[in-house]
Simulated assay, not measured.
Amino acid sequence: MASINPIELQKALKGADYPASRDDLASLAKNNGAGSDLVERISNAKTERFDGPDDVQKAVFG
């Protein structure tokens, strides 16, 4: 599994409007050129709705 860092996550979520659904953020990350591993981690997060980037970071990096 490729290593993902917080800066990659920030770039992937550029332009996100919160609160946002898991699916919306995964789609945004894909459109922003994120790697498939990062998109998959967002898609598979246990949280269905994120109130901000900190929530996403916690879900992705555990």
Rank of each mutant, 00 (worst) to 15 (best):
M1H: 12
M1D: 10
M1Q: 10
A2L: 12
A2E: 13
A2S: 14
A2P: 14
A2W: 10
S3D: 14
N5M: 06
N5E: 11
N5L: 06
P6Q: 12
P6K: 14
P6D: 10
I7Y: 12
I7K: 13
I7L: 13
E8S: 04
L9F: 08
Q10E: 14
Q10L: 14
K11V: 07
K11W: 09
A12K: 00
A12Y: 01
A12T: 05
L13E: 00
L13W: 05
K14Q: 13
K14A: 13
K14M: 09
K14D: 11
G15C: 05
G15D: 01
A16Q: 02
A16W: 08
A16I: 08
D17A: 13
D17S: 15
D17I: 14
D17V: 15
Y18A: 00
Y18V: 08
Y18T: 06
P19S: 08
P19Y: 10
A20E: 03
S21R: 12
S21Y: 09
S21V: 04
R22A: 00
R22W: 08
R22N: 10
R22S: 00
R22V: 04
R22G: 01
R22E: 05
D23K: 11
D24V: 03
D24F: 07
D24Y: 07
D24R: 09
L25V: 02
L25W: 01
A26C: 07
A26I: 02
S27P: 03
S27T: 13
S27K: 14
S27R: 11
L28R: 01
L28I: 02
K30S: 11
K30L: 08
N31A: 14
N31Q: 15
N31V: 04
N31H: 11
N32A: 07
N32S: 07
G33D: 03
G33F: 09
A34S: 05
A34F: 03
G35C: 07
G35P: 07
S36Q: 13
S36W: 10
S36F: 12
D37F: 11
D37M: 10
L38G: 02
V39L: 04
V39W: 04
V39D: 03
E40R: 13
E40V: 06
E40S: 15
N44R: 12
A45R: 02
A45T: 03
A45K: 01
K46V: 09
R49K: 15
F50M: 01
F50L: 00
F50P: 03
D51P: 02
D51M: 07
G52Q: 05
P53S: 09
P53V: 13
D55R: 01
D55P: 07
D55I: 04
V56H: 00
V56N: 00
V56E: 04
V56W: 00
Q57N: 12
Q57A: 15
Q57I: 13
K58G: 03
K58C: 05
A59V: 07
A59I: 06
V60W: 04
V60P: 03
V60K: 01
F61R: 06
F61C: 04
F61A: 02
G62P: 02
G62W: 08
G62F: 09
G62M: 10
G62N: 14
G62T: 10
